[in-house]
Nucleic acid binder design. Structure first.
Lengths: 188, 188
DNA sequence: CCTGACTAGTCAGTTTCTTGAGTATCATGG
DNA sequence: CCATGATACTCAAGAAACTGACTAGTCAGG
């Protein structure tokens, strides 16, 4: 039941529509949680029913109407409760790790191709997160922003996302080097 | 359907029982995938039915009998196919990230307490992974092992696990520092 | 002697997540 | 002028994961 709280957290800063949330929780962007649009719309419906968020219809011309949501007092209380509860620590769960785990018995070139793909993806995310951080802190230096800037929550989670993708990048590069070296040694 | 392949990958090096796998895929240990025992036993049954692994009964005295599993040729072929298929990139999905995302509106001390808990957990995993790596490479220096040691797959995934937990550790420490500084600034 | 932990699993039920398709309108590019 | 692609969602079905309880024997500690 964390999607619930992830949605609440995402709506804290400002009113957002389901569609906007769907963009923010997208695979290519997600910096603190990931979910499909269908999940989000379902969750928004449940949250509204429970009174944790409230929605208002915005009539637009030139495009479909939308519903904008804000967190209610009850919703904020729920988030506070969630924050106080002990979190189960997250673990890595990554297809690529499974493939590398099998490195000894699986075709090396195939594996290197996968690692190379991942480098591309990780690099894109690194770039994205760096842009995002710059946008958030604006003119200020990072130390300045960290001390007084707002909102600080999204900035901190974005920092984690950045470090994570850099970690992926470094690891993929290292793994490729190792696999190539071994391949060369085996061929010799 | 990656649990399937994670199990195959875990059985590659040596024959293992469901119970051993359950230990290996445990929250406190998992270095490349996480799953509950019930999931594993169910998956093992399916894999055996499909002929991807084969099990043999081992009669023990003093403790319950167990079934040891090994990957068949069909199983290895399936892993090979999986390796060649494009993997969906993993994203972070962590309760703690959600809590930090809400940092601006949620009690700071509560949040710091959560971050501190996580530091403890992450430190334990860092220690565990470092021990594991030492065990795997034995007497050899790391560069030596990376070039010729076997199995290399588990070593590489363990390296990723280690870097990930170090990342958690650093981020939690940084977040705590930032939150405390801001708290001090706000009180002044 | 009893409790709790370890080995080695199984069963049932629910929640959560993913897949895939569908609706409808408007703006943009070739 | 026609095809994308963006905006803004909805519905249904299936796969994967999680929760919680239960069996049953062994061994060590208090």
């Amino acid at each position: 039941m964390t999607l619930r709280h992830a949605v609440l957290a995402a709506l804290l800063d400002e009113e957002r529509s389901g569609y906007q949330l769907a963009k923010a929780f997208d695979l290519g962007v997600a910096n603190f949680w990931y979910a499909k649009p269908q999940q989000l719309y379902a969750e928004l419906a449940r949250l509204e029913q429970g009174g944790l968020i409230s929605g208002r219809e915005v009539v637009q011309d030139g495009r479909p109407n939308k519903r904008m949501f804000t967190v209610t007092g009850t919703g904020l209380a729920e988030l506070e409760k969630f924050t106080a509860a002990t979190a189960k620590p997250s673990v890595l769960r990554d297809d690529l790790m499974v493939k590398v785990q099998a490195a000894d018995r699986v075709d090396t070139d195939t594996l290197i191709a996968q690692l190379t793909d991942r480098i591309g993806f990780a690099q894109d995310k690194v770039d994205l997160f760096e842009r995002l951080l710059r946008t958030m802190r604006g003119e200020r230096a990072e130390a300045e922003f960290l001390r007084h800037g707002r909102p600080i929550g999204p900035y901190l989670t974005c920092l984690r996302g950045l470090a994570f993708e850099r970690g992926n990048l470094d690891w993929c590069e290292r793994a490729i080097t190792v696999l190539r070296d071994r391949q060369a040694a085996a061929d010799a």
